[in-house]
């Protein structure tokens, strides 16, 4: 069984800062981590490997420094890692990103299961996982909270809904996006970290993937980001104290002032 885990390196913060000139994330001074939801995908892959015996591969598309995210995945027990990186991929939207990742997965050849986190903590789109399955023309199940069973080329999973869950069976290969309820990711091990440090990480660029330059990067992306901005923070409120009648009058006056 071959399992592929798709991960993204993200800034370690929920308060993303944006450069208003370039409309891009400010990454300086913010530590990079593996997208927290992808940690569950990694853990699930390692658990399946331990249970069923599988070859696990982690892939990411990103700048060269995303290599550290791959090494962290290796330290948790993933077997191999591929970094998909090229200047030509810069500015790719979710359509292009899923196209490039799907192309890389095709190049890898045999696969039975693709695991992704349900969404990235920076972009929050939840589009890349489903996008990969569309480009590969394979089934997808999103928001998976449990893998119940895998046998005879078929998988049964529990898919989280707002109230309860549904049980879905799918043929393999399939792409799953997972939620945090699925497991508790392990910490890396020291031996795993030492192995990860020495592991060779494959680097695939546009050339290796043989992609049409018109279809990747900012140019190939149908999404056009016109403007990104942080919503203005709420100003502190005002508390009026005193007798009800007096306060009501004050309030009415203040509201009148606001309107004029």
């Amino acid at each position: 069984m071959n399992i592929i885990v798709c991960i993204k390196q993200v800034p370690e913060t929920t308060e993303v800062k944006i450069n208003p000139q370039t409309n891009t994330l400010i990454r300086e001074g913010v530590k990079s981590i593996i997208n927290p939801f992808d940690m569950y995908a990694i853990e699930e892959a390692v658990r399946l490997k331990e249970k069923l015996g599988a070859k696990t591969t982690v892939i990411t598309m990103g700048p060269p420094q995303a290599e550290s995210a791959l090494r962290e995945a290796l330290s948790m027990g993933i077997d191999e890692a591929i970094l998909i990186s090229d200047r030509a991929f810069a500015g790719s939207d979710t359509w292009v990103t899923s196209y490039v990742l799907a192309s890389a997965i095709k190049k890898m050849g045999n696969f039975d299961l693709i695991l992704c986190g349900k969404q990235a903590s920076d972009g929050d789109t939840a589009q890349v996982g489903p996008g990969i399955s569309a480009h590969l023309d394979i089934p997808q199940v999103t928001y998976v909270k449990k893998i119940e069973d895998i046998h005879d080329n078929s998988i049964r999973v529990e898919r989280m809904l707002e109230e309860g869950y549904e049980i879905i069976e799918s043929p393999l290969p399939v792409l799953l996006t997972v939620v945090k309820e699925i497991n508790e990711p392990r910490l890396p091990s020291f031996k795993g970290m030492m192995r990860a440090k020495q592991a060779k990480i494959l680097l695939w660029s546009q050339k290796e993937l043989n992609l049409d330059p018109q279809k990747v990067g900012l140019y190939g992306s149908p999404t056009q980001v016109i403007k990104i901005f942080s919503p203005p923070s709420r100003k502190g409120g005002k508390i009026l104290r005193g007798e009800a009648q007096e306060v009501v009058n004050q309030l009415v006056d203040l509201l009148r002032e606001e309107l004029t």
Partner: peptide
């Protein structure tokens, strides 16, 4: 158990006996 899973009990034990 977490320390064990992270291989921390073997850090001062020679490799031939399972440490690092």
């Amino acid at each position: 158990n977490i320390l064990a899973q992270s291989d921390l009990f073997g850090i001062f034990i020679p490799q031939e006996y399972g440490g690092t």
